[in-house]
Amino acid sequence: MVALLKFSPRRPPPPPLSRSPLAVQGLTVAYGGEPVLREVDFVAPEAALVAVVGPNGAGKSTFLKAVLGLQPRLAGRISCYGHPVERQRRLIAYVPQRSSVDWDFPASALDVVAMGLYRRIGWCRPVGARHREQALACLAQVGMADFARRQIGQLSGGQQQRVFLARALAQDARLYLMDEPFAGVDAATERAIVEVLRSLRQRGRTVLCVHHDLHTAPDYFEHLLLLSGRVVAAGAMAEACTAAALEEAYGVRLPAGGATAVRAG
């Protein structure tokens, strides 16, 4: 023991990976040499709804993409339920920004939701009647059962967002990463999403959600990850969401979880 410590004083063995849904250590991400995220440390609790908040360019979407491996990281360790995140992709569902796909694609709402089942269906096998039923049940959870056969381009923005949400539900994951699901949606969709978030938490799932509306964040989420190129504040909403932290992140004085709606979008 003593000898070991003596001979490797600079390299302590890596600490055991956390068992929590998501544990990020020293994550650094750069676009073309310009660091977007620096030294991010974050641990998401079990069965928690976490708002990922920050000004434009704070690296919120980049953070999600780095966790998913869609964006290469310069440094850092990411673990998911005790294992490196690369080996746990089946436990993670991702709801990308609505603008990230071509909605003219020839598919119905049900076709898109069924994509969430592809891993379970397996390679080279067709989508069966049983899978279509499961997909329909997921659409029903977001109140979209009536639109199952509609081509996705003919849905409103909020309805498209709910289709994406239903697709993530179909994956039956344990960790959900959502990139601005509330962006530009109508009131009905916002209520539907909040309901889904709460039912996910009830079933022990953890959700990280990029969110822009500081006004509603404390109502919908009980945890906060405040980013601005680095972690400005993280933890329980009541403690982390302080006026000082928000001012540091946004560079202007904002009321903390306050009465004024602040839309940084």
């Binding site: 998913l68 992709r89 089946r90 990230s100 994509m115 891993r119």
Partner: peptide
Amino acid sequence: VLFFKELAVTTFDPGFAAGLGI
């Protein structure tokens, strides 16, 4: 016919497909 699902999902949403292990 065999790779219909895989061709469809990588065409529609490559990022999501990566999450499915495709």
